[in-house]
Design a protein around this nucleic acid. Structure first.
Lengths: 144, 144
DNA sequence: CCCAGCTGTAACCATTACTGTTACAGTCAG
DNA sequence: CTGACTGTAACAGTAATGGTTACAGCTGGG
């Protein structure tokens, strides 16, 4: 499925913002986040930009600029993050329309749409059950 | 996520095999399946090849060759198909290992692995609840 | 009011996956 | 033996991703 790491990068950045805030550091620059994720700052700015558009983080420009969470980490779920960074549906339909003269070709798309919708709902329910605060908690728990 | 249509193609092919069998046609060639999906027969042979490796379909070679379901469509779930055609996990980790000197970089991977596993389990449960027979039923229901 | 320091974004590259296509060797029922 | 079909390699076009450089735009603090 050519899985991407955007959700991982975004959650990592948010958890790092949450921890920094708890430690008294109001904002982090894209360079500072990139130093934890170990990637290029532009990749971080792109990812945090999507989260900003979704209202999950705030950004200050100019001197003393940087990023911070727009609301407490308990109130940001992985579903919020998923919706912010993921555009495509889980499963794609046929690239070209199937043969409508075949009974299967005619009815398969709406039938699959129903099933796929159910799967996406299940995935969303699961993602909604975990917050950035939960992730941070488990992260620190695992590395004493 | 660069979603692909392999699951869709595979389910379409299986539903078509199930219907053809019900109509008295023992096997279908890749050309016949391709005519319903409207794609190249090689694409079908590739897809059905994966299903064959997973034991979901049987194939006969030589003259009078073709494909058929290895077991009744009620006993083939979309989870079976998903596992046969999808290799990558739903969400990828960082491409490069994060900074282990950062507490978040150190613990984020196992923390996310736990969450991602839960999501995949939810997705699998959902897929396991639908069989090829169900899909065929809904397909024909929607196109009288 | 200016400037250092940072964001936002365009542009480009290498890599990879997917779909579609041609070609051809291997297989086997009749 | 042969025709019909499978299995698979090889290749092309398209697209997404992650990484990188470059640079215009913004703004708090001096």
């Amino acid at each position: 499925m050519a899985a991407n790491s955007r959700l991982t990068i975004a959650v990592h950045a948010l958890a790092w913002l949450a921890l920094a805030h708890r430690r008294g550091q109001a904002v982090l620059t894209s360079d500072e986040v990139a130093a934890s994720v170990l990637t290029n700052p532009v990749v971080i700015r792109r990812g945090l930009g999507e989260l900003h558009r979704a209202g999950l983080v705030e950004v200050r420009r100019g001197a003393g600029a940087g990023w911070r969470l727009a609301r407490p980490p308990e109130q940001i779920t992985l579903l919020d993050v998923y919706e912010a960074v993921e555009r495509d549906p889980l499963f794609a339909m046929h690239h070209t329309e199937p043969n409508l003269e075949c009974p299967v070709g005619r009815g398969i798309r709406p039938a699959l749409t129903g099933v796929y919708d159910g799967v996406e709902q299940a995935l969303r329910r699961e993602l909604a059950g975990t917050s950035i605060a939960d992730v941070l908690h488990r992260t620190l728990e695992l590395t004493p």
